[in-house]
């Protein structure tokens, strides 16, 4: 009989010593501290501040005597006639850029580059990253020249061949330019995601389709597209949010013009009101209210994404417990 009877003096379960307890707090704090401070200062605090400022009449004129005005800024936004124009602009901007470029062109690029020899495919995909890493200012200069008046503009030079009357396209078709310029940058995001999604389709499915006699087009239509609908949904939602908030390229290309608010979108408007001296009196409160609406949309949308795309399930428990 080797049954083990434990004769050890069973002391009452020892509490974790204070040192170990302290360590469990200090070590993670050391590792996450710097990021936490930065994120707190420049994400959390600003979210709250944006909403707080939006409830005041803070502006350059009132900076020394800020008053709480409740929802007055929001009411002003609601009543302002320009709001509707800007809302319409935002829809045009987000809708068209998203449909034709960030998803449309991205899908076309992903499909083509996965259907040609890999060497070519990678080369083309890499090339499409170039606009994304090109400094926005230079990118804007290139577009300005691209669309410039005759005899300088490249578009005009090309269209001349077809007898199209030359013009400054940035002024003549500002939306076309704004959408295309943003879209050429935005397409690469979807392209990369779609490419890896297409690549991760099990080869068996594609073979099966080939065996069944599907044409390339049928294969794309009935096998590939249905299988990457989640990545497409992801790109649509993710890019909607970032387009809603982005105004850098518009600022550099048209600055909301030409003329009165022709290409002024919501986020650019918030920026103009709150941070640009263009109108003389900088209205922090009003601008913050405009931004706060985007912030709230952003917070809600990103929380929804977190749920819908089940990011949480990717979180595995660490296998080392000791700290």
């Amino acid at each position: 009989m080797t049954q083990q009877t434990v004769t050890a003096q069973v002391t009452p379960h020892m509490d974790v010593s204070w040192r170990a307890r302290l360590r469990r707090f200090t070590t993670p704090a050391f590792f996450t501290g710097p990021a936490f401070v930065l994120v707190f200062l420049f994400f959390f605090l600003p979210v709250i501040l944006t909403i707080l400022i939006s409830l005041t009449d803070m502006s350059v004129a009132t900076i020394s005597d800020i008053k709480f005005v409740g929802l007055k800024n929001y009411i002003r936004i609601w009543r302002s006639r320009t709001t509707w124009k800007i809302l319409r602009n935002t829809f045009i901007y987000v809708g068209f850029t998203l449909t034709f470029f960030n998803v449309g062109l991205a899908l076309v690029l992903a499909l083509i580059t996965t259907h040609i020899p890999d060497r070519w495919g990678t080369a083309f995909r890499t090339f499409w990253l170039l606009p994304r890493i090109t400094p926005s200012v230079i990118y804007a200069i290139m577009w300005t020249w691209f669309t410039a008046d005759a005899p300088y503009g490249i578009v005009n030079q090309f269209l001349q061949i077809f007898g199209v009357e030359p013009r400054n396209w940035m002024s003549a078709q500002p939306w076309l330019v704004v959408i295309a310029a943003n879209g050429f940058v935005g397409a690469s995001f979807g392209m990369i995601i779609f490419t890896s999604a297409i690549r991760s389709i099990p080869v068996d499915f594609l073979r099966a389709a080939l065996v069944d006699g599907a044409s390339t087009w049928q294969r794309i239509r009935y096998v590939i597209l249905p299988m990457i609908r989640w990545p497409i949904l992801f790109v649509v939602s993710y890019q909607t949010l970032s387009l809603l908030a982005s105004f850098e390229y518009i600022l550099l290309l048209t600055d909301g013009g030409p003329g009165f608010y022709t290409t002024e979108v919501w986020s650019l408007h918030a920026y103009h009101r709150a941070l640009s001296n263009y109108f003389g009196n900088v209205q922090f409160g009003y601008g913050a209210a405009l931004a706060a609406i985007l912030v709230v949309i952003g917070v809600i949308a990103s929380v929804i994404y977190l749920r819908v795309f089940r990011f949480n399930e990717m979180v595995a428990e660490p296998k080392i417990e000791v700290i």
Binding site: H13, M14, V16, R19, K319, E321, V322
Partner: peptide, 23 residues
């Protein structure tokens, strides 16, 4: 080894409880 922290009970090395000792 000290990688996992016991939920209950003790680990003795010789005459010493090592539960809180780092690996």
């Amino acid at each position: 080894a000290g990688i996992y922290i016991p939920t209950e009970g003790e680990i003795w090395f010789g005459d010493r409880i090592v539960n809180d000792l780092l690996p």
